[in-house]
């Protein structure tokens, strides 16, 4: 009993379900009207960060000739290098997450790929914190110099205020991103547990 009843119910549904009721217009309408925002909160935030990298890179490149002081030029090159690395890693992460498709993989493989992708993002947490911190400090020095012609390093409060604020901000932003990914990892792990059970 049980499964046999279910089988007969299921088969009777197969007879009564009218497969032709879904029309061409309905399918076209679904495809036209369906609007999906792929980019969840964390993705939107990451994209904003990517735009910020582009903005500061352009700013540094176009004002490079104004810096004149040797150590500021070195800092500019460092900032561009860090932003380039962060831009590539973040963009790769976004593209990889977007590319996980349901059709090309079985259910299990899709879940595993998702979990792997998110774990990869988590592994780079420390790297992201350190590089973001360095970037914030360097950008503070450069932007104050570019816009106000003021050498921030000469300020006696610089190391205390700017570095601690940069560290806090870098920690906050990256922790938030990591936690958002962690939530998705937990969901993927739940699914994996369900499969193995």
């Amino acid at each position: 009993m049980g499964i046999e009843d279910l089988k007969s119910d299921w088969n009777s549904l197969g007879n009564t379900t009218n497969q032709k009721k879904i029309t061409n217009d309905q399918i076209r309408s679904i495809l036209k009207s369906k609007y999906r925002v792929f980019l969840i909160k964390v993705f939107v935030f990451e994209i904003l960060i990517l735009f910020a990298y582009l903005y500061f890179t352009a700013l540094i490149i176009f004002t490079f000739h104004q810096l004149k002081i040797h150590y500021l030029e070195v800092l500019s090159i460092m900032a561009i290098a860090i932003m380039l690395v962060l831009f590539i890693t973040r963009l790769k992460n976004l593209i990889d997450s977007y590319r996980i498709r349901f059709s090309n993989h079985s259910y299990v493989t899709a879940v595993k790929k998702l979990a792997k992708q998110k774990i990869y993002a988590q592994k780079y947490y420390l790297f992201n914190v350190i590089s973001s911190f360095l970037l914030l400090v360097i950008l503070s020095i450069l932007t104050v110099k570019i816009y106000n012609e003021y050498d921030l390093i000469q300020n006696r409060y610089f190391w205390v205020i700017i570095t601690s604020c940069s560290l806090l901000l870098a920690l906050f932003i990256n922790k938030w991103i990591r936690n958002s990914y962690a939530k998705v990892v937990r969901e993927a792990e739940d699914l994996l547990q369900e499969i193995q059970y």
């Binding site: 549904l13 009721k21 309905q26 009207s33």
Partner: peptide
């Protein structure tokens, strides 16, 4: 969606 247009009513 416009429910008049997209009504999937097979079941």
């Amino acid at each position: 969606l416009n429910h008049e247009i997209v009504k999937v009513e097979s079941v």
